[in-house]
């Protein structure tokens, strides 16, 4: 596997507090890598340094061999990185399809065109993307009328618009019902496997993580303490101590047992 994303020695300090210290990892195309850790572990800081919202104090973030650390989000996007947010960020005053067209207009450098009708540009391509996320029928509805789960799908369609090599998903299933969660993650998984996109995501819901991630990284106090396949992480003593010691996994796993079991089987049946 050639590394799509290569992060080395990433560091960030806020007023003397080491939020992220010496984090290094790699991510391959077509791989779903989950980043987990207790609150305050440095997940968000790490994430925001990769997507460009924060500049690291030191360290390197290379995308396909190109250094992207410290570049603004919109440049990083142009290099082939798609994003979804913890709270779905869409354009409420536009229709569903226009939300996707917006990203396509940006991709084609047409933002400053003053005369063409935007609604007619890239519409078919946008409809294809919507069909891929299962919203083809709702393309012309106002985005503001969609249910939250559907907004997340719109986001996914937007994120896929620039045919990204890497997808960054911040808590992709936050605020969703358990069934919806697995449906969305399954959809994501299918889409990225099909298109060979690497995915880095953070997630609170352990059943989602263990059901859908190919590999898991565990952060604690800004450091990477473990990394490996879900099964290995589950059995890691250090991880249990600093993270699962909170009892969190146990509770979550129990609560969502049936769904996760089902999803887990399906995941196992998917492509390797």
């Amino acid at each position: 596997m050639t590394a799509l994303l290569k992060v080395q020695g990433l560091r960030k300090t806020f007023g003397g507090v080491h939020a992220v210290e010496d984090v290094s990892f790699e991510l391959a195309s077509g791989e779903l890598l989950a980043m987990i850790g207790p609150n305050g572990a440095g997940k968000s800081t790490c994430f925001n340094m990769i997507n460009g919202q924060l500049a690291p104090d030191s360290g390197s973030v290379a995308l396909g061999g190109r250094e992207i650390a410290g570049r603004p989000p919109r440049e990083i996007w142009r290099l082939g990185v798609g994003r979804t947010f913890q709270v779905a960020a869409t354009y409420a005053s536009m229709t569903v399809v226009e939300n996707v067209q917006m990203a396509l207009l940006s991709l084609h450098g047409q933002l400053f065109r003053l005369w063409a009708r935007a609604a007619a540009l890239h519409r078919s391509e946008a409809l294809e993307l919507l069909a891929a996320v299962g919203l083809g029928q709702r393309a012309d509805e106002p985005c503001s009328t969609l249910a939250y789960g559907d907004l997340k799908r719109v986001e996914l369609a937007i994120a896929l618009a620039n045919r990204p090599a890497l997808l960054l998903m911040d808590e992709p299933t936050a605020g969703m019902a358990p069934l919806e969660r697995n449906a969305l993650m399954q959809l994501t998984r299918d889409l990225v496997k099909e298109r060979g996109i690497g995915v880095l995501f953070t997630e609170h819901s352990m059943d989602v993580v263990f059901a859908h991630a190919d590999r898991i990284m565990v952060l604690a106090r800004g450091r990477l303490i473990a990394e490996g396949a879900p099964a290995a992480i589950r059995d890691d003593r250090q991880v249990r101590e600093v993270y699962f010691g909170s009892g969190r996994l146990v509770r979550t796993a129990h609560a969502a047992a049936p769904g996760s079991a089902a999803a887990g089987t399906r995941a196992a049946a998917g492509p390797p």
Partner: peptide, 18 residues
């Protein structure tokens, strides 16, 4: 559309190259 995108969600706009 780009102006409205920037108004509706600066976060989304910036992360899609606007």
């Amino acid at each position: 559309y780009a102006m409205r995108a920037g108004r509706d969600s600066p976060l989304r706009a910036e992360s899609t190259g606007i």
